[in-house]
Each structure stands twice: as C-alpha cells, then as structure tokens.
C-alpha cells in the first residue's frame, strides 16, 4: 500500500479534532467560545468536522461587549445557524449599567466586558470546559500554555501549577467548581490559519478583506467609524481602502491600509509585512508580560 504523507495542515487538523473529541468525552458541560474572528471560524469548522454527521454537541458562547463591528454581529447569527448549533450571547449587566465603553474607560473596558463577562457567563451556565482559539505563536507567555489549561473555581490561571501533557493523553479530571480552558489550535500559526481558511473555503467576516471604509486616526491607530457612537469631535472620517488583521471592539481594533481583496492577496500581504498580529490590538501595549498578568486574572 502506498504511503500517504500528511501535510502539516492535515496533522494540525487531526490534532485539533482529537482534542475536541476528548473534551466532549470527558467534560460534563462544554462550550465553545466564539468571538466571530478568523480563529473562531476555523474552530467552528473543525468542530463540525470532528462530530460530523452529528452537529457539534455543545453551544457557542459569544461574550459580547456591544462594541463589536456590525458585520461581526451579522456573521455570528449566520455561522451558528449553518452549523446547527445553539448561540448564547452574554453581556455583562454591570458593564451595561455603568455604560462602560472603550472611549472613556480604557483598560476597564476589556476587564469588565471580557474578563468579568466571561467568568459570569461560565458560572451562569455552569460550563466546566470552554474551547478557545488561542494560539501559542501569538504571544510569548502563550508559548507555555497547556492545551488543557486549568482554572480554579475563581477562574485564576496559575502558571506554576500546570499539569504535564504527554503524547496525545490529556488529563481532564477536575474537582467540582474548577474548569478548564481548552485550546485545540495551540500549535497553529497565523499563516496556518489563513492557509486553512483558503483551502477549506471557510467563510470569514468581510472586514478581513480590503474595502473603502470610513476611518480616522485615533491615538496612533487607524480606526473605522462603524456607528454613530464614535466621538468624532468635529473630525471628518476619511474613506480609505483598509482591512483588519484581527477583529475585536471596533474602537480598539486598528485597520491597515490595503488593497487585498482575495485570500491569496491577504496571505501575500501577511508574508511580506513585518508587524505581528496583536500589534493592531490596543490591549498588549502597556507593558511586557502584560498578557501573562491578564491571564492570571482570568482573561482568556
């Protein structure tokens, strides 16, 4: 019989599917965190493959901040429907009440909507395992993150007290109240993600492709004016051909000027560019090792 050599993408795909099946077999109530971005799109696609012909046996959870791009909200509903999965949306009621927004509240915005919002949603539904799309190549502290990452009942991550992970054997046992975050695409790089989207023809939010969009410069980031909550202070948005390398809250997500309107063009730009992915997000800039701190506090 001839040897079939699996490509790196086939092996990464198999690894992710293996991890997802392991969680479904061992966790009591798993959920997939869904942020509508390209990594989430890949995760959702992998989940469909892992459990086909059954629909993925867990719901999707979007921890919403009310400040995402409008195009992301459209995509969210459609993606869940196509996968035959239940979509849960959580918005931190305290953040709603206090009107927390990225323009006035700085890092409190991320803390309340995302970090606190995520903890609330997991506690509210009693989820004991949450799939996330984090990758080890994104940031230094993530290089050491386990695939199965344990969190205490108060959702804290202790980098000194992680379980060794050998072979393909994952220890998913935990005490009631503890939970785990599971990262099936830990070993993927940004290029792998794009390549896979291209190969598998996965639908992504149109914001990843370049188009003429109304933009302004704000604290050094090129931002898109996605709705009328943007405080322009008399400034007039300029139409520019831009696209986004990552998607989050529109007032925090920097656009790049680009003419790339197809996936190969996006990949081409990515390969030729020399600015790493998280650069477009305002969150990491404050200090080195800031992500590690955020993680210890329970940020994904």
């Amino acid at each position: 019989m001839s040897i079939i050599t699996l490509t790196h993408l086939q092996r990464l795909e198999a690894e992710a599917i293996h991890i997802m099946r392991e969680v479904v077999s061992e966790a009591e109530k798993p959920v997939m965190l869904y942020s509508v971005g390209k990594d989430s799109a890949v995760m959702l696609h992998l989940a469909r493959k892992a459990f086909y012909p059954a629909p993925p046996p867990f719901p999707l959870l979007h921890v919403d901040t009310t400040w995402k791009f409008r195009a992301m909200y459209d995509m969210r509903e459609r993606a869940a429907r196509n996968a035959g999965m239940q979509l849960l949306v959580h918005q931190n009621p305290d953040a709603i009440r206090q009107g927390i927004n990225p323009f006035d509240h700085g890092s409190l915005h991320t803390d309340m909507w995302k970090t606190e919002g995520l903890k609330q949603a997991l506690d509210l539904h009693g989820f004991d395992a949450a799939f996330g799309g984090a990758r080890r190549d994104e940031e230094k502290s993530r290089a050491k993150e386990r695939v199965f990452s344990f969190r205490t009942a108060s959702h804290r991550w202790d980098p000194k007290n992680q379980r060794p992970e050998l072979w393909r054997v994952y220890n998913a046992r935990k005490i009631k109240g503890e939970s785990m975050r599971v990262f099936p695409i830990s070993n993927w790089t940004e290029l792998d993600i794009w390549q896979y989207i291209h190969l598998e023809n996965i639908e992504i939010v149109p914001l990843y492709y370049a188009a003429e969009r109304p933009t302004v410069y704000h604290n050094g980031l090129l931002l898109m004016v996605d709705d009328d909550r943007f405080p322009l202070n008399g400034e007039k948005p300029v139409m520019r051909s831009v696209r986004f390398r990552t998607l989050g809250c529109y007032p925090l997500t920097g656009a790049v000027e680009s003419r790339a309107t197809t996936l190969p063009q996006i990949i081409q730009e990515m390969l030729l560019t020399t600015t790493s992915e998280r650069q477009g997000r305002a969150i990491d800039h404050d200090q080195s090792a800031s992500m590690e701190k955020k993680k210890q506090e329970g940020y994904f």
């Binding site: 080890r136 230094k140 050491k144 060794p164 070993n187 590690e292």
Partner: peptide, 21 residues
C-alpha cells in the same frame, strides 16, 4: 524565554513550544 518570573531568573522553567517553517 517567556514567563516573567523565569525571565528574571535567566532560566527556562517549563516546556515552551515554538514554530517556524
């Protein structure tokens, strides 16, 4: 060398995974 604690000590304590092609 990733985590803050070990960067200060100048040693690598854990298993870190790196990627290149």
């Amino acid at each position: 060398d990733g985590l803050a604690a070990e960067r200060e000590q100048g040693i690598t304590i854990d298993v870190a995974y790196r990627f290149f092609a």
